[in-house]
Simulated assay, not measured.
Amino acid sequence: MPLRDALSATLLTLACLLAPSGTLAAWATHGVADTGRYVDTMAPLATDPAVRNAVADAVGDEVARTLAPAGADTDTGAALAPFVRDAVHSFTRTEAYRIAWEAGNRAVHDAVLHALRDDTAPRGPVTVDLAPVTARVKQRLTADHMPYAHRIPVEHTEVPVVPAEEVAGLRKGYHVLDAAAFWLPLATVVLAVTGIAVAARRRRALTATGLGTALGGALLVLAVAVGRRLTLADLPDHLHRPAAAAIYDALTATLRTASWLLLALGLTVALVSWLTGRRGPRRGAPSPATAPDGRFRRPPATLPRP
């Protein structure tokens, strides 16, 4: 009996530890690493004020630096920077910007995903061509009669999005997550079922499994919150932290939902198992006509009164 309890406890502990890990791997592989889901997740951010401000500032500064050499002196770009930012801010409210936002996210995600999945891809940084986005911005600035807007070059230049030295590590990490997304959930179910089956008291083992699963879900919720804080703390630019927070929240929305579902599922299983155990008949209590050894015991004979 002690050996069965020890084996059951070991298997159930492993299952409860693998449950949040499997959830995280499945989210990374089937959520973030899927281009369609990624684009659908990022699409609503096109109208987020923090994201629009960050995009306008980044594009405006880049356009201002592009215009600087074309002027009579080096201060031309700096003088035009406020006007360029205003024009780009206006562009972020248009339908063309939302189309460009979706096309840019799809292009970047496709390029990164191709580099991570294809082991035969040439070595070097992951690049993407953002010429269509630049063309849309130039068209908008020209329509607004912005000075020097017609001089903005629209060339098919490859813009690096992932450094070459990080591609190999990311590729190995992706392959590990891809395998873990399948094997970890399967191993969790097998370990949990086996641990409950070999337990001497299965109802108690089921209750413990539910509580362990709920604890894993709670830890995953905490990990997402801590990851958000650490991610924003590492950003050097304080102005773009609201935009980064919006993007982080959008990407981890599915993971947070799965974490809360894991917590709720574990608590529900534990509560139902505990309640059915309390309401069920108690076993092992001898009946009045049964001896402790299980044999039938005759009631004592009564003598007739005289």
Rank of each mutant, 00 (worst) to 15 (best):
A250H: 07
A225P: 05
A199Y: 01
G210M: 04
L219C: 06
I247V: 15
R241L: 03
L239Q: 15
L211K: 07
Y248W: 15
P242E: 05
A192R: 00
G210S: 06
A223D: 03
A225W: 10
L235Q: 15
A233P: 14
G227D: 05
T194K: 10
I247N: 08
L251S: 06
L239W: 15
D249M: 05
A197R: 10
A253H: 14
R241A: 00
L251T: 06
A192P: 00
R241T: 02
L239F: 15
L219I: 08
L239M: 15
R228H: 11
A199N: 01
G210R: 01
V193R: 12
L219K: 13
L211H: 07
A208W: 02
L206N: 00
Y248H: 15
V226A: 13
A243Y: 08
L220Y: 10
L222W: 12
G227H: 10
A244T: 03
G195H: 01
A253R: 14
L222K: 14
V226G: 07
G195W: 00
Y248T: 05
H238W: 15
R202L: 03
D237K: 06
T207I: 04
G195V: 00
V221L: 13
A244S: 07
G195M: 00
L215E: 03
L251W: 11
A246L: 06
G216D: 07
T213Q: 09
H240F: 13
V224P: 05
A245C: 07
